[in-house]
Amino acid sequence: MSSVSTQIIEGNPHLRSLLGWHLQQLGYGVFQSANLTQGQSAFQRLQPDLIILDADLSDGSGLEFCRWLRRQSPVMVLILSTRVTEADIVAGLKAGADDYLPKPFGMQEFLARADALTRRIRNPIPPAYLDYGDLKVDLVQRRVKLKDETIDLTPQEFSLLYVLAQASGLPLSRLELLQRAWPDAIDNPRTVDTHILSLRKKLEVDPRQPNLIQTVRNVGYRFNAEASRKAALAKGTPGAVVSNLRPTAAASS
């Protein structure tokens, strides 16, 4: 039995119901949307693990919606489409789809592809790159860029930043940071304060009023990813909404 939450965004009501029924028989949690407007609203409310996405919906481009999804979440996306050329498939994958299934297709192939994506959800590949707008962290090369400028961090500063970032905004105590970010056992919590101060000097606009690495009173420190993202948006980075996904018939080809 699968516990994967699945959203089907498919314009054909018969196909939508059929796909949903077969997935439910395998234990998937399924909810359905008939178009992109419904799909965006349901996605924001329910945050599914897997999306089955029709590329040719009546109210917009499925590929543009896929690009929008990629800016919101690491959700798995399986695109279904009547467009079957190699160029179409490549375009779908470049838009951010994890898999692309041309119509018509057999139900067993569909279920096998859904199962393959489900296994990837259960056993995710660790990320190699973190993007927080102005702040970008390369986990392979252990490099940090702020506003496209490389920031020179020591190995210990990088490890501390990585542990804070991986906590997804949750505050971590000094003891937790010592246990997770330091390679050797250290029992002096003030060591954390020293390195936090050094990080702030390198990453914050005003280290005396830190916005990215925040102090949580009586707890420790937290990484405020939204600070970097909001700074990028304030400079005019566009955000996609369904109302902008309405190409003409010619543009949607």
Results as ranks from 00 to 15, higher is better:
Tyr129Thr: 00
Trp21Gln: 11
Ile51Glu: 00
Val242Cys: 10
Leu160Ala: 04
Ser2Pro: 11
Ala240Val: 13
Ser41Asp: 11
Asp134Gly: 06
Tyr132Cys: 02
Ser41Cys: 06
Glu149Phe: 09
Ala250Gln: 14
Arg180Gly: 03
Ala91Gly: 00
Pro155Phe: 07
Arg120Asn: 08
Asp206Phe: 03
Leu164Val: 06
Ala91Thr: 07
Asn12Met: 03
Ala34Lys: 15
Leu197Lys: 15
Val75Phe: 00
Gly239Leu: 15
Gly133Ala: 01
Gln156Ser: 11
Leu69Arg: 06
Trp68Cys: 12
Leu19Met: 14
Val140Met: 07
Ala128Ile: 09
Met107Phe: 09
Gln156Thr: 09
Val77Cys: 02
Ser73Ala: 10
Leu175Lys: 13
Val4Cys: 09
Ser252Lys: 12
Ala112His: 13
Gln47Cys: 09
Pro127Thr: 09
Pro74Glu: 04
Met107Pro: 09
Met1Val: 10
Ala231Ser: 11
Ile8Trp: 00
Ala234Thr: 01
Leu80Arg: 06
Leu46Val: 12
Ser198Ile: 05
Gln32Met: 14
Leu93Trp: 05
Arg190His: 13
Lys94Asp: 10
Ala55His: 02
Phe65Leu: 03
Ser58Ala: 14
Val205Glu: 15
Gly62Lys: 01
Ala114His: 07
Gln47Met: 12
Leu46Met: 14
Leu93Asp: 02
Gly20Asn: 04
Asn224Phe: 01
Phe31Val: 08
Met107Gly: 09
Gln47Thr: 12
Pro189Ile: 07
Gln38Asp: 15
Leu117Lys: 07
Glu176Ser: 14
Thr154Ala: 04
Arg45Phe: 08
Ile9Tyr: 06
Gln47His: 10
Pro104Arg: 09
Pro210Trp: 00
Lys136Asn: 07
Ile9Gln: 01
Ser252Met: 08
Leu203Thr: 09
Ser2Ala: 10
Gly169Asp: 01
Pro247Ser: 04
Arg45Asn: 11
Asn12Glu: 06
Trp21Asn: 13
Val192Lys: 04
Glu176Asn: 15
Val84His: 10
Ala232Asn: 08
Ala232Val: 11
Ile186Asp: 12
Ser61Arg: 07
Asp56Gln: 10
Arg119Gly: 09
Asp152Trp: 04
Ala91Ser: 13
Ala91Asp: 11
Ala185Ile: 13
Leu111Phe: 04
Leu153Asn: 05
Val205Met: 14
Asp59Lys: 05
Ala34Met: 11
Leu57Lys: 08
His22Trp: 11
Val192Ala: 02
Val219Ile: 15
Tyr132Lys: 00
Thr85Pro: 07
His22Val: 13
Thr37Pro: 03
Pro124Phe: 06
Phe31His: 15
His22Glu: 12
Trp21Arg: 11
Thr154Cys: 01
Gly96Val: 04
